[in-house]
Simulated scan of single mutants.
Amino acid sequence: MLLYRAELDADLTLTGGGHLQARGLLVEVPHADVTRPEIAACLVTSLGLRNVDRVALTAVRIFGAPATIKGRSESRIEYVELSHVIESGMTTYPGLPAPVISAYRTWAESRAAYAEGTEFSFDRIDLIGQTGTYLDSPRHRYVDGADLAGIPLGRLADLPAVVVRLVGAERRGIDAADLEPYVVAGRAVLLHTGADRHWASERYGVDSPFLTEAGARLLADRGAALVGIDAANLDDAVPGGARPAHSVLLAAEIPIVEHLTNLSELPPLGARFTAAPPRIAGFGTFPVRAFATMPWFEPHDHTRSAGWLPTSAQQ
């Protein structure tokens, strides 16, 4: 396992006036394909600064080093659960059938088939694809679109994530202007609205946040790898209404994950996202075990909190 560092020159402009310069500075970064905005975040946090208006990076070089460094503790990986638990009888979306979990063959019923003291359970579940936290493939929207078996693993696993904070927004629609500051190419774009706090209640899905058509087009045009949301639907799910966000993203073969949870535990940058469904042919949507991974360091390593980033450094 490697730790990664960036060797850089940087010019920092402070919000209260003033200017800092760094030359040949070494900063630990979370992964090998780290972007300049992520490097800026690591730099600002490692220096303990909170009043930075702008970061200009030059002469950046990324290199790896062994995980065990003299005087330092080895890094570990932290896993963050982003899926809801699927339980028999639960409601994911009003009007859709709940899953039914039952025993096909119990432990007691299996004993006759094995040696004494050996028993197994054979469990059965009846559900529709739109249960719990699930992923939509292009086939969900388009009859000739790629199904679950047709999505490359590179679009589902270990994607660099960018978390867009939208909690407390005064309007429901997430528009292009909300996404404009973010670098999204090749990334899982996770829309953190806070709507998951109403999960399993009557309020869940009522006046839910959603992605507008303009927002979806920006993400598609800029090459997002996947789009997820912690709300009931990526679109404004009014009865009989259009579904432009699904239409735009799935036409561009960008998978969608709905009903995420726990996005507040992720930094804006630096996490890796995975949401892989079973490899089922002829199926468009299925539950996933969505999760994120992040490097974890001992408390004296300041790069653990490298998610904070001045808006101007995201350009």
Rank of each mutant, 00 (worst) to 15 (best):
R165P: 14
G145N: 08
R203E: 09
A56K: 10
R171K: 14
A146F: 07
Y104V: 04
A112E: 14
A276Q: 15
D235P: 00
D144T: 11
Y134L: 10
G117L: 05
G71R: 03
A188M: 02
G154S: 13
T68P: 10
D221C: 01
P278K: 00
E202L: 10
P30E: 00
S73D: 08
V27A: 05
I128Y: 08
A251T: 08
N51G: 14
S305Q: 11
A157D: 13
A276R: 15
Y79T: 15
S88F: 03
L148M: 09
D126G: 01
G16A: 15
I62C: 11
A292N: 02
Q315F: 12
D147E: 09
Y134C: 05
G154E: 12
G145C: 04
A281D: 13
F63D: 06
A290R: 02
A242D: 13
G282L: 12
S88R: 05
L43V: 06
M294S: 02
T13E: 15
P278F: 00
A59I: 00
L3N: 15
L179G: 03
P30F: 00
E87R: 12
A200C: 11
E258Q: 15
T274M: 13
V27G: 02
A275H: 01
Y114E: 12
E78N: 08
T193N: 01
A161C: 05
L20T: 01
A169Y: 07
A161G: 10
G95D: 09
I256E: 05
D236F: 06
G168P: 00
T311I: 12
R304T: 14
D230R: 06
A292V: 00
D33C: 04
Y79G: 00
V288A: 08
A41C: 08
P239G: 08
I280D: 08
L269K: 04
N262K: 07
L8P: 11
M1W: 02
L2F: 09
G282H: 12
R141F: 06
A6E: 00
A195T: 01
E180V: 05
L309K: 03
V248I: 12
G240F: 06
A149F: 09
V206L: 11
F273Q: 11
G129K: 04
Y204P: 10
A271C: 10
A195F: 04
G228F: 09
A276E: 15
I69W: 08
Y93F: 11
T106W: 05
D178S: 05
H19W: 09
D301F: 09
W296Y: 07
W107F: 15
A281C: 05
R5L: 04
Y114K: 06
V189M: 07
L14Q: 07
T285N: 10
H300W: 06
P255W: 09
A169H: 14
E265Q: 14
V163W: 02
D221K: 14
T212F: 09
D207Y: 03
F286H: 13
R105N: 08
L234M: 02
Q314W: 12
D230K: 04
L12G: 15
H84C: 01
R165N: 15
A115Q: 12
D147N: 12
G71I: 00
E87Q: 13
G223A: 04
P160D: 04
T285Q: 14
V60E: 01
L43F: 09
W308Y: 12
V227L: 01
R124D: 07
